[in-house]
Amino acid sequence: MQFKNFPMVSRIIFGRGSFNQLAEILEPKRLNTRAPFIFFVDDVFKGNAWLTSRIPLAYDDKVIYISTKEEPKTSQIDTLVEQIILNYKERPSGIIGIGGGSIMDIAKAVAIMLTNDGESKDYQGWDLVKHPAIYHVGIPTISGTGAEVSRTTILTGPERKLGINSDYTPFDQVILDPELTKEVPKDQWFYTGMDCFVHCIESLNGTYLNAFSKSYGEKAYELCKEIFLEDHLTEIEAQDKLMMASWHGGMSIAYSQVGVAHAMSYGLGYLLGIKHGIGNCIVFDHLEDYYPDGVKLFKQMKAKHNINLPKGICANLTEDQFDIMINVALSLEPLWENALGKHWKKQITPEVLKALYKKM
């Protein structure tokens, strides 16, 4: 049997206020004064001096604010790479992503595409990247996606929504500063936290499960229950614990896979532009047949935090539109195999998926 030899984030710093150490972390990595660090920052922080004033700019370093109203697209990655190549004579010293899962994915994808020819859509899939990415750093400002630790970067391309899954995708450095998550809106906090919860459920109930994945998944699962169902945590404790739940949830799928909710959520994201966290919630709410215990807990969490999910999002879709979503979902074969085993096609048909989508 051939075991996968996955890379992990090689350096990580955790702690409230650790963002202040960014300058000393980056300086040894500067190639020369003409090779800038490029900072991709979620545009919700535009004008937020508390965060932006602490970004350590020098020489030709640049901050690029990125809107996250839509999920990252392959065309967006290609445009950013082209801008960097045209504006700088030398390859950047590094790419730093400061924001949520979308910004993490953009930073990882741009770092890869600066050293690999062609368009980013050519690398959607598993182990298609040929050359190491440039130095890249992830600094999450919201917890749950696991994008800070994963070996994938989820992109919506012209034909599908699929990650660049490769050994060169993980960050070289991650800074986990829970203080950066203090201003996350309540609904966003819930949706992204549930992305972590769903990671755990799909990993722990999958056919790919092993002791490695289980140890991380169980820890993240316990943390999610504590954060979203119990009342004894202070706000600071909850921030710290959710950041670690996100890390452990991401690690739980590093050596296994996600499942039904993620596969179907990709369909919603591709066709309707539904963002990943809320998409997972919309789908997971209807998956009692696949994850009965997990869905029961999810509904308790949803009720406790007064979350009302959008309804009827598929009510007016045409047959062709349903087919597009179904084809995107069915193309993610490793997710279905993890969820249901090698003979998953006997259980999951276009008709089964259409009936599920029609409930949403």
Rank of each mutant, 00 (worst) to 15 (best):
residue 106 I to R: 06
residue 104 M to E: 12
residue 291 Y to M: 03
residue 301 M to E: 11
residue 79 T to H: 12
residue 120 S to R: 08
residue 174 V to W: 02
residue 5 N to V: 13
residue 223 L to T: 05
residue 206 G to L: 09
residue 69 K to T: 11
residue 204 L to V: 10
residue 68 T to A: 07
residue 96 I to A: 12
residue 96 I to Y: 09
residue 278 I to R: 01
residue 325 M to R: 08
residue 174 V to M: 04
residue 235 E to G: 04
residue 86 L to R: 15
residue 276 H to Q: 11
residue 333 E to P: 01
residue 320 D to W: 04
residue 63 V to Q: 05
residue 30 R to A: 12
residue 275 K to P: 00
residue 88 Y to S: 10
residue 181 T to P: 06
residue 42 D to H: 03
residue 72 P to H: 03
residue 268 L to K: 01
residue 248 H to W: 07
residue 277 G to E: 13
residue 226 E to Y: 00
residue 198 V to I: 15
residue 48 N to P: 07
residue 229 L to T: 03
residue 215 S to E: 08
residue 168 Y to I: 00
residue 73 K to Q: 14
residue 126 W to R: 02
residue 50 W to R: 08
residue 332 L to P: 00
residue 170 P to A: 07
residue 335 L to C: 04
residue 236 I to A: 08
residue 171 F to W: 02
residue 83 Q to W: 11
residue 34 R to Y: 10
residue 66 I to Q: 08
residue 82 E to C: 05
residue 122 D to V: 09
residue 62 K to P: 10
residue 60 D to M: 01
residue 252 S to H: 08
residue 227 I to V: 15
residue 307 I to S: 10
residue 77 I to K: 02
residue 294 G to I: 14
residue 210 N to R: 09
residue 74 T to K: 03
residue 243 M to Y: 00
residue 109 A to H: 05
residue 23 A to C: 01
residue 285 D to M: 02
residue 59 Y to L: 00
residue 82 E to H: 13
residue 142 I to L: 13
residue 133 A to F: 11
residue 187 D to M: 13
residue 344 W to H: 09
residue 17 G to C: 04
residue 123 Y to V: 08
residue 249 G to S: 13
residue 239 Q to K: 11
residue 200 C to S: 05
residue 171 F to G: 02
residue 268 L to M: 01
residue 197 F to W: 14
residue 343 H to K: 10
residue 253 I to W: 15
residue 313 I to S: 05
residue 266 Y to T: 00
residue 193 G to T: 12
residue 235 E to H: 08
residue 163 G to F: 15
residue 185 P to G: 14
residue 57 L to K: 12
residue 83 Q to F: 09
residue 213 S to F: 12
residue 271 L to F: 09
residue 193 G to A: 14
residue 292 P to Q: 07
residue 33 T to L: 11
residue 8 M to I: 15
residue 34 R to M: 07
residue 232 H to S: 15
residue 47 G to Q: 03
residue 220 A to L: 12
residue 152 T to V: 10
residue 22 L to D: 02
residue 300 Q to D: 15
residue 160 R to A: 05
residue 312 G to F: 04
residue 180 L to A: 01
residue 220 A to F: 12
residue 237 E to F: 07
residue 142 I to E: 11
residue 214 K to G: 04
residue 203 S to H: 12
residue 328 V to I: 03
residue 54 R to A: 15
residue 193 G to N: 14
residue 224 C to D: 13
residue 175 I to E: 07
residue 120 S to H: 11
residue 168 Y to A: 06
residue 53 S to F: 00
residue 201 I to H: 03
residue 95 I to D: 06
residue 331 S to E: 09
residue 203 S to N: 10
residue 219 K to Y: 09
residue 242 L to T: 14
residue 328 V to R: 03
residue 116 N to C: 14
residue 196 C to G: 07
residue 334 P to G: 08
residue 224 C to L: 13
residue 290 Y to H: 07
residue 108 K to V: 05
residue 337 E to L: 04
